[in-house]
Computed example of a mutant assay.
Amino acid sequence: MDGWRQQGMTLIEVLVAMAVLGLGLFAAAGLQLRALQATESAQRSTQDAYLAQAVSEQARADGALRFESAGQ
């Protein structure tokens, strides 16, 4: 057995490599989910801002908001 050399990988090495790869893929999927949630939240905030601006502009155009100083 002195001249015997290991060639290839053992089953334990393969299982450990698969576990590490699986954890990496699981973490990447979690990050992707968080990115999608953040994108959706940002989109809702942007739509809210556009809606608030539109309502404000409409009220201003209708004369409901007056930006005149008290002295005039």
Rank of each mutant, 00 (worst) to 15 (best):
Q47P: 01
A64T: 05
Q47V: 02
L31D: 10
Y50M: 15
G24A: 08
R34P: 00
L25H: 04
L25D: 02
Q58P: 00
R5I: 07
T46K: 13
E40D: 15
L36P: 00
S69T: 04
A42W: 10
G71L: 05
Q6L: 10
L36F: 09
Q53N: 13
Q32Y: 12
G71C: 05
Q32W: 14
Q47E: 07
A17T: 09
Y50Q: 15
A29H: 06
S45H: 13
G8P: 04
A17G: 03
A64I: 11
S45F: 11
V14E: 04
E68Q: 08
L15N: 07
E68K: 13
L25W: 02
G30T: 09
M1D: 05
L31P: 02
L21G: 04
L33M: 11
T10R: 00
L21C: 06
D2R: 03
M9T: 06
A49P: 01
D62P: 00
R60P: 00
Q43E: 11
S56E: 08
E40Q: 15
L51W: 10
A17E: 15
G24F: 02
Q7Y: 04
D2H: 02
L51P: 00
Q43G: 04
E13F: 07
V20M: 06
D48N: 15
S56C: 07
R60Q: 03
S69I: 04
D2T: 08
A42D: 15
L36H: 09
A17M: 10
L11A: 04
T46V: 10
Q72R: 14
L21I: 07
L11M: 07
G3N: 08
G30L: 12
G8W: 00
T46P: 00
D48V: 08
L65S: 03
G24D: 05
Q47F: 00
A29T: 04
E13I: 03
A29R: 09
G8A: 06
L31N: 14
D2I: 05
S41Y: 08
A49Y: 07
L31G: 15
F26S: 03
Q7M: 02
M9W: 01
Q37V: 03
Q53E: 15
Q53W: 06
V14Q: 09
A61Y: 09
A64V: 03
S41C: 11
L31C: 11
L15I: 12
L36K: 12
G24H: 01
Q7A: 02
G24I: 02
F67I: 07
Q7N: 02
V55R: 14
G63Q: 04
D2Y: 03
D2V: 05
M1Q: 06
A61S: 10
Q58K: 12
Y50D: 15
Y50R: 15
D48P: 00
S69A: 05
L11D: 03
M1E: 02
A52T: 12
Y50W: 09
G3A: 08
S56Q: 13
R60M: 02
S45N: 15
Q6E: 10
L36W: 09
A54F: 10
L11Q: 08
G63N: 03
L15P: 01
A35N: 09
R60L: 07
R5D: 08
S45E: 15
L31Q: 11
V16P: 00
A35Q: 15
A27R: 08
G30Q: 15
A61W: 03
D2L: 06
M18I: 06
I12E: 12
